[in-house]
Simulated assay, not measured.
Amino acid sequence: MYQIDLNCDLGESFGRYTLGMDEDILPYISSANIACGYHASDPVIIEKTVQNAKANNVHIGAHTGFPDLLGFGRRNMSLSFEEARTYTMYQMGALKGFCLAAGIPLYHVKPHGAFYNMAAQDYKLSCAICEGIASIDSNVILLGLSNSQMEKAAKMVGITFKQEIFADRAYEDDGSLVPRSRPGAVIEEEEVAISRVIDMIKKGKVKSIHGREIEIKADSVCVHGDGEKALEFVKMIHRTLKEEGIGIKAF
């Protein structure tokens, strides 16, 4: 039987501003990547999201980003090895504190936005992230882009790596994500996105934006919770996975 984790980026509201439909989406996913205050969120929202995830038996991960609230962590930054390592530790430590208070584990770390995309192609940056994770808790998993530099870095540092695929994002020929600034980067048609996910899980393949078939590994599927039709899409992919005989379970 096929089995997959279904993850979503949550807790990305800030103060009076609400982003996403966290409480509605939680019943349909198995893992939540919770923003830690650098690209989004604040302590009140972090605690609330942790408690809601616990109530839904959803595994929690730290969604670590660049310190860029204005740019939502989607702007590239040039960091030293030490900065990338300690920024990871700082954010991971913040979320782990709320998890300890709630009596639940912190299962994984998934970098956000530009931090994620840069690390996927930059081995040194990936190593810094992995060392930051290992220094806090070497049992915590790194969730990252399938077949990326993050996988190699995790192996070198000695932490577990899980391969992530995206339901609504287009891929380049090399397996990297098409930048959001380019047309076609986000797949709007729900049926097309879900069909691609099924192929990635069952066949281990996906067509790039240029039509080339590339190999891909899938431990977890990311669905975004902040789109116009986010909730309906999450419900649809949850239902289709079950219809296809694919179990939904946190790694």
Rank of each mutant, 00 (worst) to 15 (best):
Q3L: 03
D5Y: 06
N7S: 05
S13L: 05
S13D: 05
R16I: 03
M21E: 14
L26P: 02
P27K: 05
S31R: 09
N33G: 03
I34P: 11
I34S: 13
C36G: 11
H39F: 11
V58Y: 10
V58H: 13
I60V: 07
G61R: 03
A62T: 11
G65N: 00
F66P: 14
P67E: 00
D68A: 05
G73M: 07
R75P: 07
M77G: 00
S78G: 06
E82W: 10
E83K: 06
A84D: 05
Y87L: 14
T88W: 00
G93N: 10
L95P: 14
L95Q: 13
K96G: 02
G97A: 05
G97M: 06
G103W: 15
G103F: 15
L106C: 09
Y107I: 09
V109L: 15
K110W: 02
P111T: 05
G113Q: 04
A119H: 11
E131C: 10
I133Q: 10
S135G: 06
S138H: 15
N139Y: 04
N139Q: 13
V140C: 14
M150L: 04
E151S: 14
K155A: 14
Q163S: 15
F166S: 09
D168C: 07
Y171P: 15
D173Q: 08
D174T: 01
G175F: 02
V178E: 10
R180V: 00
S181D: 11
S181M: 03
P183I: 00
G184H: 06
G184R: 12
A185T: 08
A185E: 02
V186L: 10
V186Q: 07
A193R: 12
S195Y: 07
R196N: 15
V197K: 14
I198R: 01
M200W: 00
K202R: 13
K202G: 11
G204R: 04
G204W: 12
G204N: 04
G204K: 08
I209Q: 09
H210Y: 08
G211V: 04
R212G: 01
E213R: 03
E215N: 14
E215P: 06
G225F: 03
G227A: 09
E232N: 09
K235N: 03
I237H: 11
I237K: 06
H238V: 06
R239D: 14
T240M: 10
L241P: 13
F251A: 06
